[in-house]
Design a protein around this nucleic acid. Structure first.
Lengths: 328, 328
DNA sequence: CTGAGGTACGTGAGCGTTCACGGATGGGAG
DNA sequence: CTCCCATCCGTGAACGCTCACGTACCTCAG
C-alpha cells in the first residue's frame, strides 16, 4: 500500500502552502475562491484525507466514546447501544463498540480500548485493581455494576418497585405457586431472583427456583423445557430476561398450555420484541433510552470536568416498571 | 478539566528521559527493572495515558473500522454488528459503530466518520458522487447495496435460490393464494417482493402484494392487521423480514388463525429470535456470520493493499437459504 | 593496560496538522 | 503621492510520541 497523501503533497500539487490547504479543507475565511477550488481539486486528485492523528494532536476536544457490551445477539444490548449512540451522537461524539463476549483476553481488549477512547460506558466486569489500572484518569460509567460501591460512575437498576407491583398484581389474581426461571451459576441466585423471593415472602408466598445457564440457545430451550416439566403446578413463571421468557412462552405452547390462562409468564427487560409476539409479553420493563441518556450525560459531564470521576454524584438509578401486556 | 499528563511530565517526575518512559510503558528491552518500576509508579501517580494521537502519528498501522448501520432495534443489524466486531476484533481492529437512522444530516455524520476510521463497512445509502467524495481513498464495503454496480466493495445477497426452494415447498403443499407483506415506498415493490413474484410466476401462480412502511412498531402492527383482514383468503404470507413476520404471527393468533395450519407464514433474515417463538418461524435465512466475515475480509484486504478498492474482485455474494421450521 | 562488547539511558529528528504571526499586494481615502 | 487597511498567502513553532543513533559506564578477554 503506497503512502497516503499528506498536506504537503496537496500543497505542492496545488502550488500553495500547507496553511492554504488547511484553509481550503476546513472552509476557513481568508482564501481566494479560485485558490480554494484549485486546492480542493488537488486534494481530490490525490485522495487526500487529513490525518486524524495530526489534527488530534493539535486540536483540543476529542470525542470518542467506548461502549463495552456483552452479547449483541441478546436484543437488550443493542437497545442500550442504540440509546447510547443516539445520545452521544447528538453531542457530537463517536462510539467505539466492543463486544467483549468472545474475547480471549478481556483485559487486553479493554486495555487497548482504553487507549483509543476518551470515555467509557458499559459492562466492564473486571477486578477492581485491574479496572483502576486500565482506566486511570478515564471517565467510566458502568451499567448495572456488580459491586455495590462502584469504582467510577454508574447507572444502577432498581427492580424492587416494579417487582412489588408485579407481586400485587399476581396476588390480586390469586396466584399461588410462582416459579423463577433464573440465570445464575449453579447453587446461586441472581439479584433478580432474590428480589422476587423477598417480595413474595412479604405477602406470605414461597416459590420454586430453577436456574438455567447453558450458554447456547438450543441448550437454554432444552433446559427451559425440563424446568417446565418439573414444575407443572406453577401458575406463574418469572423469567430472568425477556429473551428467555419468549422461549418459555414457546415451550408452554408446545406443551399445549396457554398464557395467561393456564400459566402466567413474566419477563424482565421490556424489549420491544415482546410487543410483537402473541400473547404479548408482560414484563418488568426498563426504559433503555433513559439508561443510555443517563449514562451518556454522566460520562460526558465527567469528561468535561463538571462531574467528579467517582463518588455518589456520578450514580444514577433507573427503575424498572411493570408493563402489563397479555401474558400475565 | 486540567491538562492531561504527557510523557514529559512522567519523565520529569521519574527523573528520566522521554525515551525511558516509552521503554517502560511499552515493555521494551534495555531498561533496568528498578527504573521501569519507578517510571510506572510515576505514570500511575499522574494518571498518565499515552496519547493515541502522538503514537498514531509515528506508528504505521492503525486499525479503526467504521460500521454504518441503520436501526439497531431491528435484530438484523446487531447480528451483523456482532459478526463484524467479532471478525474485526480477531484481526486486532476496533469498530466504530454508527447508527445513522436518526441522523439529522447523514452526509455530515458519515463525513465525520470517514475522517475517524481507516476502513468502512455498512449501509451507506448515499448519492454516488457524495459517496465518492467522502470516501475517496478509503476502503469501503457496502452491504446489500442498492446499486447494481457498487462504487466500492460489496457483499450482496442472493435471495433467488432460497426463494425457489420456498416456492417448491409451497407448491408441494398445495398453496394457491400467496400474499407478500412488503416494505417499500407506496406504489413500489422491494427487490424481495420482485423475486418472490417472479418465482411464483415461474410455477404459474399469481399472488397479492401489500406494502407497509409506517416507521413505527405500533403503526406496523396496525398495518399488518389491516392487510390480513383485507386478504383473509391468503394461504401463505411471505413477510419482508423476520421482525414483521413475528408481528404477522401475533396478529394471526389474535384473529384465531393458526400457523401453519390455517395460513403459512414465512419471514426473511433468519434471526435467532425466530427459534424462540411458537410456532418457530420458517424463514429465508442469511448466514450473518458469513456476511460479517466476508465484509471484514474484503475491507481488510483492501486496506492492506492486497485487493483493489473497487471492481469485481471485491464483491462477494451470500445466498439466503430456506430454513424450514414450524410456521410454513 | 587496551579495547571489544554489552547494558542503560539520553538526544535530535520527524510524523501531519493547526495556530499565531508576518509579509506581500492592491485599492481607496485623504 | 502617501498612508492605511483589507485581502490573501506563507513561515516558524508546537502538539506527544517513537525511531535511530549517540554516549557513558562496566566487564572481561587478550
Amino acid at each position: 500500500m503506497q503512502r497516503a497523501a499528506t498536506i504537503h503533497d496537496v500543497a505542492a500539487a496545488a502550488g500553495v502552502s500547507r496553511q492554504t490547504v488547511t484553509r481550503a479543507m476546513n472552509a476557513m475565511p481568508g482564501i481566494n475562491v479560485d485558490t480554494r477550488e484549485r486546492v480542493l481539486a488537488a486534494a481530490r486528485e490525490l485522495s487526500y484525507r487529513p490525518s486524524r492523528f495530526g489534527r488530534g494532536l493539535v486540536k483540543a476536544d476529542h470525542r470518542m466514546l467506548g461502549l463495552v457490551l456483552d452479547d449483541l445477539t441478546n436484543p437488550f444490548y443493542p437497545q442500550l447501544a442504540s440509546a447510547v449512540t443516539g445520545a452521544a451522537g447528538r453531542a457530537g461524539w463517536n462510539v467505539v463498540l466492543t463486544d467483549a463476549t468472545h474475547a480471549v483476553d478481556r483485559e487486553a481488549l479493554l486495555a487497548d480500548l482504553s487507549r483509543q477512547v476518551d470515555a467509557v460506558i458499559g459492562y466492564l466486569w473486571l477486578d477492581p485493581s485491574v479496572q483502576a489500572r486500565l482506566f486511570a484518569g478515564v471517565p467510566v460509567v458502568e451499567i448495572d455494576p456488580i459491586r455495590r460501591q462502584p469504582l467510577n460512575g454508574a447507572v444502577t437498576f432498581d427492580l424492587r418497585p416494579a417487582m412489588r407491583d408485579l407481586v400485587r398484581h399476581l396476588t390480586a389474581h390469586d396466584v399461588r405457586r410462582p416459579l423463577m426461571v433464573d440465570q445464575a451459576r449453579p447453587g446461586e441466585r441472581s439479584g433478580r431472583a432474590k428480589v422476587f423471593a423477598s417480595e413474595l415472602e412479604r405477602v406470605g408466598l414461597g416459590g420454586d427456583h430453577v436456574s438455567i445457564a447453558t450458554g447456547s440457545t438450543a441448550g437454554d430451550l432444552a433446559a427451559i423445557g425440563a424446568a417446565l416439566d418439573a414444575h407443572t403446578d406453577a401458575d406463574v413463571v418469572l423469567v430472568y430476561n425477556d429473551l428467555l421468557a419468549l422461549g418459555v412462552l414457546g415451550a408452554l405452547r408446545h406443551r399445549g398450555r396457554r398464557a395467561p390462562d393456564d400459566v402466567r409468564v413474566v419477563g424482565i427487560d421490556g424489549l420491544s420484541i415482546g410487543e410483537l409476539v402473541a400473547p404479548r409479553l408482560t414484563t418488568l420493563a426498563l426504559d433503555m433510552a433513559e439508561v443510555g441518556r443517563s449514562a451518556t450525560e454522566l460520562v460526558l459531564g465527567m469528561r468535561a470536568g463538571e462531574l467528579p470521576l467517582t463518588g455518589a454524584a456520578v450514580r444514577r438509578k433507573v427503575r424498572h416498571r411493570l408493563l402489563l401486556r397479555d401474558s400475565a
